[in-house]
């Protein structure tokens, strides 16, 4: 069963210089209990997809076309008040803690209780009881719910935010760079926590990160994004073993492997394009070592090559990658 299905989503930001084409024809499906990683360079539109799903766009952002089916129900035409009941109750979000995702003037426990009381008919005592359980679930002492955010360390804030995301027992969680600002040791413990909870609650997750190694550790399936497009989508094992898109290949060769033999890294030459004025055809053609004339002229279709292995490349399967 599919929890989320995004079809041909197009989302632009209007700026003084013109439209920033942040998300262009993105399709994605997530089954129940699956964890999907969304990986790509900074500014490629990962977060834009995340906030489009919850329709938390800033004033200058708009969805031009496409569908976002959440349990079969299209969210795109839904008005604000109906979206409010989907938020947190249906789909919740784990934010980056270092970025002040918690309000500094309220006790952390109260901020979680606020979300519970908003979506469920429970008494204050029951809500606080739930907070205590959630704190134990994320490996924190329940008394800490009485503290203010500034009394927490970075890792504790992140745990509290995870607890908050789980508060209303959502059908799906979007985790937007949840470990990016943490040091590697704390990052590791948070990732372990997320994996543990994911397995325990059979959580459906969309995990957004620029770090493919974090994604590989947490997700069963990986979607690779480049300049507003999802260029490849498959299960993690296949993606690492036999990528179909040259960008995925480039991304994999820019990361060192700890276990394998020592190789010289092969970074992708050039820079990601400006989304105000993206390249014609395949947006990757300006940096692609295999680019032909066709790539410049025609937008490649996002096709299914093997079962649930999609790629958007004219020459997918014909190139010798990896």
């Amino acid at each position: 069963m599919k929890i989320l299905e995004v079809n041909n989503l197009r989302m632009y930001f209007s700026t003084k210089k013109g439209d920033v084409k942040a998300v262009e024809g993105v399709s994605l499906e997530i089954g129940k209990g699956e964890s999907v990683g969304l990986v790509g360079e900074s500014g490629c539109g990962k977060t834009s997809i995340g906030i489009s799903i919850l329709k938390l766009l800033p004033d200058n952002g708009r969805i031009l076309e496409g569908e976002i089916l959440f349990k079969g129900d299209d969210l795109v035409p839904k008005p604000e008040d109906e979206m409010r009941s989907v938020r947190w109750n249906g789909i919740s979000m784990i934010f980056q803690a270092a970025m002040n995702a918690l309000n500094p003037v309220y006790k952390v426990g109260d901020q979680i209780v606020e979300a519970i009381m908003l979506h469920e008919e429970v008494s204050k005592e029951e809500a606080y009881e739930r907070v205590a359980q959630l704190y134990e679930l994320v490996g924190m002492s329940p008394e800490r719910a009485e503290n203010y955010p500034h009394e927490y360390s970075g890792g504790m804030k992140q745990r509290a935010i995870i607890a908050m995301a789980l508060a209303c027992d959502p059908d799906m969680i979007i985790a937007d760079e949840p470990t990016t600002a943490l040091d590697v040791i704390v990052q590791d413990s948070i990732i372990k926590e997320i994996k543990k909870i994911q397995a325990k609650l059979d959580m459906t997750m969309l995990y957004i990160s620029h770090d493919i190694s974090v994604i590989a550790e947490t997700c069963e399936r990986i979607a690779v994004m480049y300049a507003g497009n999802v260029v490849e989508y498959s299960d993690s094992v296949t993606l690492f073993a036999s990528p179909l898109h040259p960008y995925t290949n480039g991304l994999l060769s820019s990361f060192p492997s700890i276990k394998g033999p020592l190789k010289k890294l092969n970074p992708i030459p050039g820079e990601p394009p400006n989304l105000l004025n993206p390249p014609t055809g395949c947006r990757f053609h300006t940096r692609c070592p295999f680019a032909q004339r066709l790539c410049k002229e025609q937008v490649p279709e996002f096709r299914e090559f093997q079962e649930r292995h999609y790629a958007a490349c004219h020459f997918a399967g014909e190139l010798s990658l990896r």
């Binding site: 919850l54 938390l56 979206m83 409010r84 009941s85 989907v86 938020r87 947190w88 109750n89 919740s92 979000m93 934010f95 980056q96 970025m99 002040n100 995702a101 918690l102 309000n103 500094p104 003037v105 606020e114 979300a115 908003l118 979506h119 908050m164």
Partner: peptide, 26 residues
Amino acid sequence: REDYIMTARAKGLPEKTIRDRHAARN
């Protein structure tokens, strides 16, 4: 522009609560 305002919106709080409880207080 703070992130906790985004959190408040993502929680599904009504506009007035976000404005008064989360934004104005700070």
